[in-house]
Design a protein around this nucleic acid. Structure first.
Lengths: 122, 122
DNA sequence: GCAATACTAAACCACATGGTTTATGGTTCG
DNA sequence: CGAACCATAAACCATGTGGTTTAGTATTGC
């Protein structure tokens, strides 16, 4: 154990806040999907057109994704290409996975508990 | 393919909105963790006390989790026990997983593409 | 029935967010 | 240089969210 075990440091917490919040909007999820499947680098302009968004609005959504570390905007000439950073997604996915793992184990324990009760009452 | 492939029906979309939004708050994530690890049924009152929240505030957070289908509130006497529904979490986790899978495959394809370029230039 | 208990509803406030319109910094290309 | 283009900033509005205070609705137990 390195620092605190119960409080689960605040920086990671903030990051998860941002990642989950970023994914909590259909447009941003579609954006992420586009980036995940894209076979060619996607610029802001092309992304906006592809999703029928104004450049300004896309900019805001891209900023949200960037805040969360899900996406980087890399300048190339006068345009910027969007790059997905799968690490942030992995962190969120892992969080859910851990919660589910705990739950599964608790579920099994409850099962056992109920079985024990039935043994006693038998 | 059943209905539309591009639009990915709106109901599932709304559900994901709610689940990700629900997880985008540290208190609610801690709540979920509590429920996942709990070895005894957790009531609203006990949950509020455990996290140092007013009953009213916990009620709001619980409502958010319930909207998302992450949690159910089952009346038992004059209190309500919180039950976690892992299915909603699974849906969110799976969404991320798919995005990551696509990305991985695109990543490999890009790798191949670059290798091809280097072959040509050699 | 009555008091205490457990949860919920409502009103309200400060602040964040999604979205539009308008305007501004850079970068290419004629 | 100047015009066109890409991306962003700023101002602004409507709505949603986190949080508190206050009040209300059941349910237990005397």
């Amino acid at each position: 154990m390195v620092y605190g075990s119960g409080a689960a440091d605040a920086a990671a917490d903030d990051r998860l806040d941002a990642v989950f919040a970023a994914l909590a909007h259909p447009v941003r999820r579609e954006l992420v999907q586009s980036l995940a499947r894209a076979d060619a680098p996607l610029t802001m302009g092309r992304a906006a057109a592809a999703h029928g968004l104004s450049p300004q609005l896309l900019n805001k959504h891209a900023a949200a994704l960037e805040r969360a570390g899900v996406v980087r905007r890399v300048p190339r000439g006068r345009e910027k290409v969007l790059e997905l950073d799968a690490a942030a997604l992995a962190a969120a996915q892992q969080w859910i996975g851990e919660a589910r793992a705990f739950w599964q184990q608790r579920f099994d324990a409850l099962d056992q508990y109920i079985a024990d009760l039935e043994d006693e009452s038998a």
